[in-house]
Write a protein that binds this DNA or RNA. Structure first.
Length: 191
DNA sequence: TTCGTGATAGAG
DNA sequence: TCTATCACGAAG
């Protein structure tokens, strides 16, 4: 079942938690979302809207469910989804469990192990071919590029990874025990 | 642990 | 212009 725009007209933290277990379809490729992070435009100093005027403009000019894609460290594309409920922000897609297009992913990543295809935000964009051309794309308009209900799972929560501000918010959500979750020590945690 | 790589934004 | 910073990943 498709995930429509209303899903993203809620709190970013709720969206991040509920996106875990959903399937992301990206053309002929797909995977189950097993790790996400929420960024809240209002109180969260780690959110791009806090320090990037272009991010605030993006929020103003796009509908909920739009893809927010940017390049980090000069080489890694990050895939986010715009959320616009009472609170506005983003959900970062951090890891997928590959479903369709395994050969294409292996080719794009240049590694053999399936658990290395999409086990990190930079890895999954590389595996799927996400880049700046997708920035602003409406992920609620087209079944070929969007989210679908897949598994009913209870995500665990932990602090977010790789940020230097607002490090204490427990806004990272992941499927406990799933081998495609990024990091080493972060694969387990509270329920 | 270190380093590659480039967009962004603010300061000078 | 110049510089700091950055939601990463691979190699050493």
């Amino acid at each position: 079942m498709r995930i429509g725009r209303r899903f993203f007209q809620r709190d970013p933290v709720v969206c991040a938690r509920e996106l875990a277990g959903c399937r992301l379809q990206w053309g002929k490729l797909s995977g189950v979302v097993v790790e996400t992070e929420a960024y809240d435009g209002a109180d969260d100093e780690a959110c791009h809207t806090w320090f990037r005027p272009s991010a605030r403009a993006f929020v103003a000019e796009h509908p909920p469910g739009a893809a927010y894609v940017y390049l980090n460290y000069g080489m890694h594309w990050m895939l986010n989804v715009l959320v616009k409920g009472k609170r506005q922000g983003f959900v970062l897609i951090r890891a997928l469990e590959p479903l369709q297009g395994l050969d294409a992913m292996r080719e794009a990543r240049g590694v053999q192990e399936i658990t290395q295809f999409c086990s990190g935000p930079g890895k999954l964009t590389r595996a799927l071919g996400v880049n700046g051309s997708h920035h602003g794309r409406d992920l609620c308009a087209d079944a070929a590029f969007g989210f679908h209900r897949h598994r009913n799972i209870e995500a665990s929560a932990s602090p977010r990874i790789g940020i230097s501000r607002a490090v204490d918010f427990p806004w990272r959500f992941f499927v406990p025990g799933n081998p495609h979750v990024s990091g080493k020590k972060q694969k387990t945690g509270q329920g």
